[in-house]
C-alpha cells in the first residue's frame, strides 16, 4: 500500500506522515511513499481553477496506479480524490482505492484498538469534509477511545466548521476569523491540552489561532496520537 502524504503534511507536518508510517508498519502493513506524488489539486479545484486541477488529478492516478490501497491522513484530500477526481479525469483504480486514515484502519484493517498510549486530555474536532463528504462517522472517536491513558473530552458544537475552508481563510479572512474565535472558545471550554483532528489544514487554522493568543493548547494530528506508544511517546517521533 502507498501513503499519500498530501502537500501540506509533506511540507509542514513531516511528523504526521512519519506517524502514519510508524502506525501502519506496527499494524503489519508495508508502506511505500512514491516520490512522484505532489498535490491532489484541491486548492485549485475549490478556488475555481478547475483546469489546473486536472493535471494534478492525472498525476495522482498515474503515481498511485498498482497499489492495493492509498492511505491519506486528510479527510478533505481523500474527499477531493474520491469525490472529484473521477469527474475531472475519469475514475481510476487509484481513486477508488483511496482511503482516509481512519477508514483504512477501521474498514480495511478491521482495527479499532491500535495499541496506542497517550496520557493527555484531548478534544476531537471532526473536520467538515471527513464528516460530511466522506462520512467517516465515529471511526476517529472509536479509535481515540481505545487509546490508553487518553482523557477524551467532548468538544461543544463539534460539527461546526472551524472557518478554514482553504482559500476562504484568506479571501474572507474576517468571517473565517469569527468562525475560528467560536471554535477556539469551544476548545478552551473543554480544558483539553491537545486538540486533534484528521486534517492538518484545519489543525493549522485552529492551532494558528490558539498559538496567537498563547492559549497553551497544542494541535496534534490524530495519526500522531495513534502512533504514540508507552515505549515511544509521540514527542519522540522526530
Amino acid at each position: 500500500m502507498a501513503l499519500f502524504a498530501t502537500c501540506l503534511t509533506d511540507t509542514f507536518y513531516p511528523d504526521t506522515a512519519r506517524a502514519v508510517v510508524r502506525l501502519l508498519e506496527r499494524l503489519g502493513c508495508t508502506v511505500d511513499f512514491p516520490l512522484g506524488q505532489t498535490c491532489c489539486g484541491q486548492m485549485h479545484f475549490n478556488t475555481g481553477y478547475r483546469e489546473q486541477a486536472k493535471p494534478l488529478a492525472q498525476r495522482y492516478a498515474g503515481v498511485f496506479a498498482g497499489y492495493h490501497a492509498v492511505v491519506v491522513p486528510s479527510g478533505s484530500c481523500a474527499g477531493m480524490v474520491r469525490e472529484f477526481h473521477p469527474g475531472l479525469v475519469g475514475a481510476s483504480p487509484a481513486t477508488t482505492m483511496t482511503y482516509e486514515l481512519t477508514e483504512f484502519l477501521v474498514d480495511v484493517l478491521g482495527v479499532t484498538d491500535v495499541g496506542a498510549y497517550f496520557p493527555h486530555r484531548v478534544t476531537y474536532h471532526p473536520t467538515c469534509h471527513s464528516l460530511r463528504m466522506l462520512g467517516v462517522g465515529d471511526r476517529p472517536l472509536t479509535l481515540l477511545r481505545a487509546v490508553r491513558g487518553l482523557d477524551l473530552v467532548e468538544l461543544p458544537f463539534a460539527e461546526t466548521c472551524c472557518g478554514f475552508g482553504g482559500t476562504f481563510a484568506v479571501k474572507n479572512a474576517e468571517t473565517s476569523t469569527a468562525m475560528l474565535a467560536d471554535k477556539m472558545r469551544c476548545v478552551l471550554d473543554t480544558g483539553a491540552e491537545v486538540v486533534t483532528a484528521g486534517d492538518n489544514s484545519c489543525l493549522m487554522h485552529i492551532g494558528g489561532g490558539l498559538s496567537r493568543v498563547r492559549a497553551g493548547v497544542r494541535p496534534v494530528h490524530l495519526a500522531e496520537i495513534l502512533a504514540s506508544t508507552e515505549e515511544e511517546p509521540w514527542a519522540a517521533i522526530r
Binding site: T9, F12, P14, R18, F33, L180, S211
Partner: peptide, 29 residues
C-alpha cells in the same frame, strides 16, 4: 501580503528544515 490576510489573526507553523519526502529519501530511499 497576501499571507498577511492569514497572519492578521493566526500564526503559521514554521516549515521544518526537512520535509517528509526528504526524510523518506534519506532514511528509506
Amino acid at each position: 501580503f497576501p499571507g498577511s490576510r492569514w497572519t492578521a489573526s493566526r500564526d503559521v507553523p514554521a516549515p521544518p528544515a526537512e520535509s517528509f519526502r526528504m526524510w523518506w529519501r534519506r532514511t528509506r530511499g
